[in-house]
Amino acid sequence: MPTSLVVNGRRHETDLPPDMPLLWVLRDELGLPGTKYGCGVGACGACTVHVAGRAVRACQVALADVQGSVTTIEGLGTPERPAPIQEEWIRHQVAQCGYCQSGQIMQAAALLAENPTPDDDAIDTAMAGNLCRCGTYSRIRAAIHAAARRMQGG
């Protein structure tokens, strides 16, 4: 099915099955591997991206249901010009294996867009669906708080 899709500000014309999950469209068809496959059932958060500014599990969104522009980790920032939240992730040396971190960062970025000053409970609620097998949770929390302070100009 011909579909037009805007990802990280670029328009892509695709001809793919309408029920193909956005995750695999991004990874295999558009060559954006930063979004990760972890479970395929929306249970780990590794594939979190933004659709119209909201954090979604890309493995659970069919191509036909994508309403709005998509932002992936690659669209958030680059190694040369990381977004402020990525800079805090780097400053706090959050990642270990790093596989879940694209999803963690995208989830946290959506949280901060909605709630610029989240407390620990708000962070817990927002991040509850993002698994990290290496257990980087405490550094993730610290990086989110630091990014929030930074967005407040503090």
């Binding site: 295999d28 060559g31 591997p33 930063g34 979004t35 990760k36 496959y37 992936t72 980790i73 690659e74 958030l76 920032g77 680059t78 190694p79 990381p82 990525q86 992730w89 780097i90 040396q93 959050v94 990642a95 790093g98 596989y99 971190q101 694209s102 960062i105």
Partner: peptide, 28 residues
Amino acid sequence: AMPRTDMVAKCTGTAEFGIDIRLPGMKF
């Protein structure tokens, strides 16, 4: 505590894991 050599790549989605390999003409 040194800045990790893999940190920037892992925070920007540019670290290449096995699952991210892409080669010309590759099949899945």
